[in-house]
Design a protein around this nucleic acid. Structure first.
Lengths: 319, 319
DNA sequence: AATCTTATTTGTCCAAGACAAAGCAGTTGA
DNA sequence: TCAACTGCTTTGTCTTGGACAAATAAGATT
């Protein structure tokens, strides 16, 4: 008669779920949920026998919708005052196709068909046909745009985006691994800083660097600044390369870069790229902003030129 | 004279880190940290100009030690009243070097020498010599223990651990990619849930599964629960496999698993493993706990047996 | 058009109190 | 001997309302 596990009953009955569960499901913090309730009157959860919040499924759904719109850049204040219907409408209609590029539609079609094997094959074939450089500079960005657009329009599920990212990353990793350049200069240390988890951009850079003879060490994502400093101090790193996605606040990126610049030896190069930095013409002293993928090759060439110059002035008088 | 950027001063000084950062680093909840301070007088963080907690690095280290002992089954009340020295002794004493295995010392030596190329070669050679299965089941765990142990003893820098993880992951990815089993059953969907970012365990599982003929789709790390549900709903997934590292709170893992179990179709298997779950005697209904890597092969065998049985009862009477 | 101010929005933190869920210890009954 | 029930203690999470820093928008300035 009695159910031994209260959680199961709670989940199966229509009463609602706890605030911790809502945090898990929506990604909105407990504090945020409470303060919204106080300020805007939504959500308005039921209460269980001992006064704890119980969120009905429909409110959770509503919250999830709001979260999605916030991620698109909308302000919470506006969204929380609107009725559910207006939100749904807004999500459907908003972006009228930014990069109208239907040459990448095949990737969406294959994703919708869950044709993972075919996706892998397609990626591999295009890579082989166009070469790594063109694949990274042209194909992957086009696909990224198409996927991002599809997600905004609700055409693509989140997990499909996950899957796409995973497959592309694997393809890039395999290529980099196959290149296996050893010991050649420059030695580049790649990573993203704390709170920045997007690896794809970093992998694209790594692929281009490796294709041009640089020797890369990737520390993966979210390396704290102090650890980066520590890593450089005890390795033979020539250049530190960081990636900042569009989600990363520009000011924070700049501060981080300046801090790093101050802490690193002057001989160590510091390159930074990613959507958070491109488009800003602001030059940060001592830091090379990589505006786009085409900028990597010249940057490498510059490094080699500078190195030759330094060596010459050091060892010979002139050559 | 005045520093324009408060972040720089804060970060470069040894002041401490915020409560949110401690939660991330230790896996202990904000509320828990505050209530410990109130009840036991530890931790006792500094305060910044506006009264917010600032945890010095040594206290965070202390907390991490406590967390580790709690995960071994000790009671918080006892641990928090003991001085640091007693704890360290306890940890050192209880498992008298768990895997007293100095055969893994080479990895530490190479890491200290920053000999990345040699590390890659060693990994690749051992993998080729022992086979993927033995490499994943024996070698990698031994290395992990050695690294974790070295880190606890301050022998290894954090970035060296980062680097090690990255290199091993690449090796595993390359192997999985090379296997490329297509379409065969079961179809396993692998991922970690939100707030769980440790991928290595997941990759090890994926390698073993792939080596035994399963067809894996990895969604990478940090997939929200609802997205997992969505992914299963529209794919031909037979089994969902999740990994929870030791830093992940056990209670949260259990709740997540129960929620998933309730939401997934009964025919879909749900496997879970990782340090957060092993060692717990508690059985969660409907969920297969993978206590260790050896448990994967039998689990796969069971799945095949069950499938045969179901098919037989469905199509024929007996065989 | 890019930067610097100022105003508003918005998320996170704090405090102490409360209490349920989990664990422990001792008792009872099969 | 082991399992189940009891009461007792420990322990983590939830509650409230206030406060304020960080993020963003809007306006001013070069």
């Amino acid at each position: 008669m009695d159910n031994a596990n209260p959680e199961i009953t709670a989940a199966s009955s229509t009463a609602g779920i706890s605030i911790a569960a809502v945090e898990r499901d929506t990604g909105l913090g407990k504090d945020t949920l409470r303060v919204w309730e106080r300020r805007y009157g939504f959500p308005q959860p039921l209460r269980d026998a001992c006064g704890e919040r119980l969120y009905p499924a429909e409110q959770v759904e509503h919250l999830r919708l709001i979260k999605r719109l916030i991620d698109q850049g909308q302000r919470p204040g506006k969204l929380l005052r609107k009725p559910l219907a207006a939100l749904a409408e807004q999500l459907a209609g908003s972006p009228p196709t930014i990069g109208a590029d239907d040459t990448a539609d095949w990737v969406v079609a294959l994703l919708k068909n869950r044709d993972v094997d075919r996706l892998r094959t397609e990626f591999a074939q295009r890579l082989a046909r166009d070469g790594l450089e063109r694949f990274v500079i042209e194909t992957v960005p086009a696909l990224n745009r198409r996927i991002g657009d599809g997600w905004m329009r609700g055409e693509i599920e989140i997990f499909e985006e996950h899957l796409y990212t995973e497959l592309i990353q694997n393809q890039l990793r395999a290529s980099i691994y196959a290149l296996g350049s050893r010991g050649s200069r420059p030695h580049v240390l790649l990573t993203t800083v704390k709170d920045e988890e997007h690896l794809l951009g970093l992998l694209m850079v790594e692929a281009l660097l490796a294709a041009n003879g640089a020797w890369c060490i990737s520390l993966g994502a979210q390396t704290p600044v102090t650890d980066i400093i520590g890593a450089v101090r005890c390795t033979t790193t020539d250049i530190v390369a960081l990636s900042f996605s569009g989600a990363y606040p520009w000011r924070k990126a700049r501060d981080t870069l300046l801090e790093l610049r101050a802490a690193l030896p002057e001989t160590t190069g510091l390159w930074a790229g990613g959507a958070a930095l491109t488009g800003r013409r602001r030059v940060i002293p001592g830091i090379r902003i990589i505006d786009n993928l085409h900028a990597i090759e010249p940057a490498l060439a510059d490094w080699h030129a500078m190195r030759r110059a330094t060596q010459n002035s050091g060892h010979c008088t002139e050559l």
